[in-house]
């Protein structure tokens, strides 16, 4: 028993333990699906899907220091890739992922090569332009995208069986946990450190033998792959996608989510995504007083104020605030226990 406890203690300290626990906690939502309002479950799924996208984007902006506004068009590529492969061509999901990733990598390399020369605001503007081009393309390739009116998705199949929304939710949870683990690995590896070094000082990074261009391209590609996979799950769950909805607003929301939560922490990114995408439908709309009448749009005010406050006072995101609080709490507890020991 003692040994088991020790073993458990060691496992529980591993960061992956938290991620798996988080996945288990999330799986309560589809399990108790019948007792929860539909809007709650739907927005939870949406939050998780955007969380996957935001994780990739956090690597790009938090570690690479590259502010791209083209995220939404990559999500759109994901949605249309899965529609084309699974609905039009009747092929399995694995192939959809493969094709989606390949298309995304090609587009990601184009975006990435543009980013090699420019930085900061200019990069944001250029990627914005590229994403606007993408929207026009979606409108015109109506065979694959449904054109202006968008397209619906018939059913999400895995291993030959079509899955219900509830089962899809489970798949999304698994994908979220995997994405968290992979992101954690990447952040704590030479790649993550090289990106941070390049963001801090381009010349110092190059003097240390880091090929800045290579790592920026890697960051771009990783974030596009995450976005495409997020888009696929979006289509699998929501079952509708329209080219013109994937504009600047979605990209900006994801940017805001990452900035509010804290771009250098996986939990921070989750908090940010929850506040931007989940807070309204999952919490405020469930409270009867807030969901009616004059307060119907109250949540947007709150999230707006939150963004302002966080950006002004907590540049490292809400996670920075939490860390500060827990640090203070621990200090207080330590002092208390010391005092007790003395007396």
């Amino acid at each position: 028993m003692e040994k088991f406890k020790l073993h458990f203690k060691r496992i529980s300290k591993h960061p992956f333990f938290g991620f798996v626990l988080f996945g288990l906690a999330l799986s309560l939502i589809p399990i108790f699906n019948n007792f929860l309002p539909v809007s709650f479950v739907d927005s939870a799924a949406k939050t998780l899907i955007y969380f996957i996208v935001a994780l990739g984007f956090a690597l790009l902006i938090g570690y690479g220091g590259l502010a791209s506004l083209g995220t939404s068009s990559f999500i759109a590529i994901g949605t249309f890739a899965i529609y084309t492969v699974m609905d039009l061509l009747n092929m399995p999901f694995a192939l959809a992922i493969l094709i989606g990733v390949i298309v995304a990598l090609m587009v990601g390399v184009i975006f990435g090569f543009v980013s090699l020369r420019i930085e900061g605001m200019y990069l944001a503007i250029v990627t914005l332009g590229l994403s606007e081009i993408m929207i026009e393309l979606f409108k015109n390739f109506d065979k694959f995208t449904g054109g202006v009116s968008g397209t619906t998705f018939s059913s999400f199949r895995l291993l030959g069986q079509s899955l219900s929304t509830n089962q899809t939710f489970f798949i999304i949870i698994i994908a979220v946990v995997i994405a968290m683990i992979l992101t954690y690995n990447l952040i704590n590896s030479p790649t993550g450190r090289a990106l941070l070094a390049a963001k801090n000082s381009d010349s110092a990074a190059r003097a240390m033998g880091i090929s800045v261009i290579k790592y920026r391209l890697i960051a771009f590609m990783v974030s596009t792959v995450y976005a495409v996979i997020g888009g696929m799950f979006y289509m699998a769950y929501i079952k509708f996608s329209m080219g013109s909805t994937w504009g600047l607003a979605v990209s900006l929301n994801i940017l805001a989510a990452v900035v509010v939560g804290g771009s250098k922490s996986i939990w921070g990114v989750f908090i940010g995504t929850f506040i931007i995408f989940g807070l309204d439908l999952m919490v405020f709309q469930q409270i009867p007083f807030l969901s009616q009448g004059a307060f119907a749009n109250f949540s947007f005010v709150i999230s707006g104020v939150l963004i302002i406050v966080v950006v002004m006072y907590y540049p490292s995101g809400l996670i920075g605030l939490f860390k500060k609080m827990t640090f203070k709490l621990k200090n207080k507890l330590a002092k208390k226990s010391k005092g007790e020991r003395k007396s």
């Binding site: 030479p190 090289a194 941070l196 070094a197 801090n200 000082s201 003097a207």
Partner: peptide, 26 residues
């Protein structure tokens, strides 16, 4: 050949140990 910089160019978000690992990147 390795160089240092006039105004110390460390990675401020990483611990000292990780900074050294950045130096060992190659």
């Amino acid at each position: 050949i390795v160089r240092t910089f006039q105004n110390v160019e460390l990675v401020w978000e990483l611990s000292v140990l990780d900074n050294l690992l950045v130096g060992a990147h190659s």
